[in-house]
Simulated assay, not measured.
Amino acid sequence: MKRTLEGLTILDFTQVAAGPACTMMLADRGAEVIKVESPAGDLGRQLGPPWQNGQSVIFMALNRNKRSIVLDLKSGQDLETARRLMARADVVVESFRPGVMQRLGLGYETARGLKSDLIYCSISAYGQHGAERHKPGVDGIVQAASGLMSVCGVPGGEPSKVQAPVIDMSTGILAAFAIQDALLHRAATGEGQWLDVSMYASAMQLQQTSLASYLSTGEVPEPCGSAAPYSAPNEAYPTSDGWIMVAAYHPQRWEAFCQLLGCPGLAADTRFTTSNERVLNRRALAEIVGPAMRRKTTRQWLELLESADIICAPVADYAAVTASAAFAQGRYAARFRHKEAGEVAVIGPYDVEAGGRRCAHGLMPSPGLGEHTQEILSDLAGSGFAGAAAPAGKGVPLP
């Protein structure tokens, strides 16, 4: 992976998931990330299970390649230290509720006064402006508020969410993208800027096709399980020993699928002639396809479908995924040694360069709370500022 951000300093006031995901991605690309924590620490350190030797796996997965300093931002001395760090940073990322950083004396106007070309990224649930701005939010709450939860699950079932924290992760990606865009702008103009990245906005971006469909038709979509609402067959079917996802909605693949099912006349059925008609008659189609699919094992169907160039995949659990050739060949798993947790396995940085070697530079483990406080203060002292470690005390408000 190219360390394209090497030489840049990111001051990280984020916690839990969305913000730490953003700064982790920047650290993976070579930026120096200084994680500022209250004496109580990032709330993410308390997320679990799972735990590994008492350490949160969730926290360790999102905070590699960072250094941690403890500052009590309600202490005048530590607040001054934070301002000094801002004056030396290229980027500040914070994820408090709108207004908190301003009340602490660390808002954008203050930061810009310390360094005119600073890029300041605020991550929040609903953005820095508007009626919802003061509301807190986490991944599941925004999945609910954004409509995403309404289209997950099965017809007639209880509300369901995407179990992976997709809003947190997509917000982190959106913020990292915005920061890199702002860095390009600064390189061209010398200007810094304030970036407003919200989890709600990220959820809107995730639902481009779904919301566009609603805005076009005015029809409120309902959950449809594994099925795609815009094409059929494009869903998971039961086999004799599991489940397989099949996407056979292109005309040639649909006809080939009918042949493999042993139902050659199905392609001529007027209810199923086109993908649009198959979507409208999805339930009737499933009543025919389902029993036919149950006659063979998942492996048998994979061989038949792949031989006919029909797009398919088994519905794999994590044990199967991590044991797969694709996972091994992609070298998705990376490891670092944590001084308390021991060896920790995570999903490593994604290298987009064709033929690139993942994690060639290695990973620095997630930091202990305040692990680098004295080291960072020494760096500041070397630049003409002497600070002191934060005393124990109350942390800043939760985001």
Rank of each mutant, 00 (worst) to 15 (best):
E219C: 02
S124I: 08
E306G: 12
L47T: 11
S378Y: 00
P291K: 06
R103T: 01
G99S: 11
D196M: 09
P155Q: 07
P159V: 13
L43N: 10
T274P: 14
V315S: 05
A323T: 14
N281A: 04
E6K: 11
Y350S: 14
P159A: 05
R97M: 04
T14M: 06
L363N: 12
I34H: 11
N53R: 02
S122F: 05
V33R: 12
I10S: 01
A175L: 03
Y350C: 12
S213D: 15
Y318K: 08
S213K: 09
G290K: 10
V36M: 03
E371V: 02
V279P: 11
F59T: 04
N65W: 01
L11K: 08
I244D: 00
D168K: 03
S240V: 00
D317N: 13
R186P: 12
S378P: 01
D181K: 05
A267S: 15
D78G: 07
T4A: 06
P291R: 07
I347N: 13
A333S: 13
Q128S: 13
P238M: 10
E303I: 00
A61G: 15
Q300M: 12
L71E: 01
S210M: 15
A17P: 02
L183N: 09
G19E: 05
G99M: 02
F96C: 10
A292L: 11
N63M: 14
N234A: 15
Q143L: 04
I58K: 02
A341P: 03
V91D: 00
M1W: 09
G368Y: 06
F177I: 06
A292K: 14
P397R: 10
Q207F: 00
R88K: 03
V315C: 08
M101V: 08
L26S: 00
I347V: 15
Y249N: 13
P233C: 05
L215A: 11
L280N: 07
P238G: 13
T297Q: 13
Y120F: 15
A392S: 09
N53I: 02
P391S: 13
V162H: 04
P155I: 04
G368I: 01
R283F: 00
R335S: 06
N53A: 07
I311N: 04
P20Q: 06
G242Y: 03
L62D: 03
Q163S: 14
Q102C: 02
D139K: 07
S146R: 04
P165D: 08
H372R: 06
F385V: 10
P221L: 11
Y237A: 14
L73M: 06
A164L: 14
A227S: 15
A326S: 10
A145P: 03
A381F: 04
A334F: 02
G140N: 09
T297P: 12
R294Y: 00
S198W: 06
I141Q: 12
Y126R: 09
G348V: 07
G30F: 07
R282W: 08
G7S: 10
G153D: 04
G192R: 00
L369G: 06
H361V: 10
T273A: 14
G218Y: 02
V321Y: 07
T110W: 04
A131P: 13
F385D: 12
Y237W: 01
I347K: 13
T9N: 11
S275E: 14
I311Y: 02
L47D: 10
M293G: 13
L106V: 04
G48L: 10
A203M: 00
A386N: 07
L62E: 11
A345W: 02
E371C: 10
S160M: 15
F177Q: 02
A341W: 04
V70S: 09
E109T: 09
I34L: 09
A145H: 11
